[in-house]
Design a protein around this nucleic acid. Structure first.
Lengths: 141, 141
DNA sequence: CTTAGTGCAAAGGATTTGCAAGCCC
DNA sequence: GGGCTTGCAAATCCTTTGCACTAAG
């Protein structure tokens, strides 16, 4: 009921409103990637009245505070996931839309090469890679 | 004047209209990633009248035919580039917006690991990786 | 009390679509 | 001339924003 994010945010000067409590509970405890619409549906049973604009504003605030990650999975909607899930690679099947959360340490070598050759600090937190999942590979003509 | 894409498309049953000729010339010869708006501006000198909807439809057709790649560089607009440029990794600086075209063979090992562990056929053609470029790393507090 | 946060509705930007007219083959 | 293409405008979709009202601290 009292998520640690709430204390964290209060200390950073944010006001803890009932809306924020509900939204944060829904997002922080989710193991999936949620769209703003998903959050709305999730919290509907608990609160009829929270507006979609408030959800966007709260999610944006959480992203700015580094508590939540926003990714674009190519489906035209942004998705949000708690940072605490730890970084991972999103393998998105462009055929069936399935999202596989893959071990991000596989990218360590690539990250190092990019650093060495381009002096570019690549962010492999919640990166998205498109392709075909095992099932859809066999189905493709 | 007569781009090879035109013959290619005619053979596949598409009609070659003046609009398509102009759009294809602009995109096929571009070394940059173009948005639909960019294409509109590029061709304006040559043709005042081409509608943005036609540009979107033509680009979409080229993507479906595999002649052009569409990527999302996170700027809210899709960008298009000829497939013939060869695959490369987009390193997008999330601070200044710069896009570095990096050697995609750096990702070969990652691709192989993903295949082995997840049976997922990752598409590293024109993939996008966000991060910080050399200049912006020093500027960040 | 002070002012951040909310709800509502309207605005926004990119892309898509319906439809009648146009033109490629 | 058949039907793929175009132009135009309207429609969509997701997200943001202006503003008056509410409520957290």
């Amino acid at each position: 009921m009292h998520h640690r994010y709430l204390e964290e945010l209060r200390q950073r000067g944010y006001r803890i409103t009932p809306q924020r409590e509900i939204i944060i509970q829904a997002v922080a405890d989710s193991t999936a990637h949620l769209t703003a619409e998903d959050v709305l549906k999730l919290i509907r049973p608990r609160s009829e009245a929270i507006n979609i604009a408030t959800i966007y504003r709260t999610l944006e605030m959480l992203v700015e505070e580094g508590l939540v990650i926003r990714s674009d999975l190519g489906q035209g909607q942004a998705v949000y996931a708690p940072q605490q899930h730890g970084p991972h690679i999103h393998l998105v099947c462009r055929h069936c839309g399935e999202v596989i959360a893959a071990d991000h340490t596989m990218a360590d070598s690539l990250q190092e090469q990019i650093r060495a050759r381009y002096h570019f600090e690549a962010d492999f937190t919640h990166i998205t890679i498109f392709g075909l999942c095992a099932q859809c590979q066999s189905q493709e003509k």
